[in-house]
Computed example of a mutant assay.
Amino acid sequence: MPRQPRRRMLTDRTRLEVWGDPIAHSRSPRLHAAAYGVLGLDWEYGRRRVDEAGFAAELDGMDATWRGLSLTMPLKHAAAARAATLDDDARLTGAVNTYLLTDDGPHGFNTDVGGLARALEEIGVRRPQRVRVLGAGATATSAVVAAARAGAVDIDVRARRPDAAAPLVAIGARLGVTVRATTLDAPDPVSVDATIAAFPGGTDLGALAGPLASASGPLVDVVYGGWPTPLALAWERAGVPAHDGLTMLLHQALLQVRLFVTGDASRPLRRDDEVLAAMRIALMGD
Rank of each mutant, 00 (worst) to 15 (best):
A148I: 05
R149S: 12
A150E: 01
V153N: 10
D156M: 06
D156S: 06
V157T: 05
A165M: 06
A166D: 14
V169F: 05
A170F: 03
G172K: 00
A173K: 06
A173I: 05
G176T: 06
V177M: 02
T178A: 15
A181K: 00
T182G: 12
L184A: 08
P189S: 06
V190C: 11
S191F: 11
I196R: 00
A198E: 00
P200L: 07
G201D: 09
T203M: 08
G206K: 03
A207I: 11
L208E: 07
G210P: 13
P211R: 01
L212K: 01
A215M: 02
Y224Q: 02
G225D: 12
G225N: 12
G226T: 07
P228Q: 05
P230T: 05
P230Q: 03
L231A: 07
W235D: 02
E236S: 14
A238Q: 01
P241S: 10
A242K: 00
A242Q: 00
L246C: 12
T247I: 14
T247N: 11
M248H: 08
L249C: 08
L249F: 14
L249K: 02
L250K: 02
H251N: 13
H251V: 03
H251L: 08
A253Q: 04
L254T: 10
Q256K: 08
Q256E: 12
Q256I: 03
V257H: 08
L259M: 10
T262V: 07
D264G: 07
A265H: 09
D273Q: 13
L276S: 10
A278Q: 02
A278R: 01
